[in-house]
Nucleic acid binder design. Structure first.
Lengths: 209, 209, 209, 209
DNA sequence: AATGAATGAGCCTTCATTCAT
DNA sequence: GATGAATGAAGGCTCATTCAT
């Protein structure tokens, strides 16, 4: 019962924060849509800011829980692990059957960071980065200096995120119909193939769906 | 004299809008910082929204004017033209000797578009896209279907924009010192080499500065 | 305690609205005079307009409650009932021992109607009109057509209202001293006698107080 | 040319003032509708208030000029002169073929007087009152005291004004169709006949239209 | 534990007005 | 003689927050 209000508040707030940003969202609107009292936010969270941080934390947890990063067994070829990695990212970003605000809110935080950003980087981004770097360790020459290794990682992740962050542009550029044809697999295949080729590797045949 | 207020207002507003977004920016703050009267905004622009649109338009024009896209002569090898293209993008993004808010505001608009977005895409993005696609036409097999050509373009642009949009993450991941070492040329070289390799091309030696 | 603010707000607002009209009255002034917070108006009433409507409604209720129309028994001579009717109207208009803004506001609304007008006509004017028409039914020939019956009613009511609506002119025309001599009874007697004479009736002697 | 702006300003302002009242009317709106500069009002009239006074004065003059009070020859029977007097009042009030704001503004001023009111009473009302009192002098017993003479006058004028001031109520009470049937002549006949009867006089046959 | 009442600061906007040209 | 630019005060309203219960 009691938790219910709090959870409803969190979900509604998350959605609205993700949609409009921190400043443009209003506690009134959140409470109204969550069918909670105006004072409930301050009672449960103390503050608008603290409510915001809570939603970010929730988004972060849910994001990790619902589409957990698949185990990438060490004996799987690196190329295939990269494909899985990229595919999971797209899955998280574009899969429509979950509340979209989780990732939306996190990416907003990553572009225009508040104090909640560091936690995300530490708990969510850093593990992903490590995972990617482990994969790349097998694909890159051993003597490549650190900064360049990072840049290769950024080149891969940058390709993926572009499809999320700049959805509006893409839609306007290629048209709505073409946009709808972009499936998770198509995109994951493209990015993986592109990146592997850049690293002098071939796309593993059996993965290409 | 007279135009001065309007221009001061535009520049200050642009800066603040770029920094905080439309909602979080307040007319009061803008006017105060621009040393203008509160009513001046409504006199010159009619509206907070219209002021915002005006700043976006200004950003867009200034952006194009100050670092114009270099002529890319048809007889220049495509690989080199790509390097120039990527270099110009990084230049526009990271060069410190101009007001930073121009691009900042445009990219904010592109991530969280309002009505001003379409104009940007039409006047600014579309020409860049055309330019890139012309270059790619020489680097890609002639029978590659349209959607894939777009994806290659997105893969290149995505790499570049990542360094701007997700600056905060990069800083947190690699540390401030390493971040400072990332120069325009380093990055442009990397992205170009990565992309050319992905397309089965070599980096033109004489271009790497 | 709690209701107190709302009531204080209503009374103060009513007074000021009656005095200056809707547009010229300012929420700030109302709140200041009612010793309430500016936001209280929007909390309790939602809107300046809605506050206005609420005051009109209050005026209307209070007006009817405090000086209720006297029972006019069917066996009382029509002439005497007319005298009572006219007397009550004057009483309501000129009696000084109640908040004057009730009628003032209603008449303002009736001269320059907003959306609140219809309610007044329905709940306040119409019953009075019916009452008067019942009286006239006995004083007028049975075959007099409807429009003319209305006009007779308007002739009576018009005489009464003139003393309220055009107080300023009357004062200027006859002087302040003569104005002060106009009592409720004097006026009611005159209007009743004038109207009865117009209808070929005599003033009932025993009524003239 | 020059006068043109001033005149346009006066007419537009008069219309708007009459419609909304002094406070609710805005200089901006007036200037815009009069196609004049915002500063024109202050240039030509100095002040919003002074502009208002000017419109009132204009209304007053125009009102007298356009439907001048007919000469009431001393040898015309008093009853007929009364009919003419009442008819002229109705004419001025209801005749549709002239700018309606003249009377509208004056009556607004008379109900809710500002400083412009006294002038109206002095220049416009007082002569009318004198005219009416001259007529009544012949119809009333010579020994009737002053206050009562005034009251008879008010009874007549009150009947007439009721149809103007409380148009909205009348419309709501008797319906739009019945309202449209109320012509100047019908009303003037009724009021005159009613009042004459009240004074023990007959309606002059040849006047009843 | 939870909420309706109340607060004051701030929002964007519009006002009548003045100034410099 | 006439006007576009600029001003400060005030407008209605919404904000996040706190209080008293």
């Amino acid at each position: 019962m009691l938790d219910d209000t709090k959870r409803r508040l969190l979900n509604t707030a998350g959605q609205i924060f993700a949609d409009k940003g921190f400043e443009a969202a209003s506690i009134r609107e959140i409470c109204q849509q969550a069918e909670a009292n105006i004072a409930a936010v301050h009672y449960h969270f103390g503050d608008k800011k603290q409510l915001y941080v809570a939603t970010v934390r929730l988004a972060q947890c849910a994001q990790s829980d619902e589409i957990p990063f698949p185990e990438l067994p060490a004996d799987m070829p690196a190329a295939q692990r990269l494909r899985t990695f990229v595919g999971t990212m797209f899955e998280r970003m574009l899969s429509a059957d979950r509340p979209k605000w989780h990732l939306q809110l996190m990416l907003r935080e990553l572009s225009y960071p508040t104090e909640a950003c560091e936690a995300i980087v530490h708990d969510y981004i850093r593990p992903m980065a490590d995972s990617l770097r482990t994969i790349l360790a097998e694909l890159l020459p051993g003597d490549m200096p650190e900064p360049e290794r990072w840049q290769v990682g950024f080149s891969i992740v940058g390709q993926v995120l572009f499809y999320y962050v700049h959805q509006p542009i893409i839609r306007l550029l290629i048209g709505d119909e073409a946009y709808r044809n972009l499936t998770v697999d198509t995109l994951a295949d493209h990015v993986t193939r592109f990146s592997l080729a850049a690293l002098g590797q071939r796309m593993p045949q059996e993965v290409a769906s």
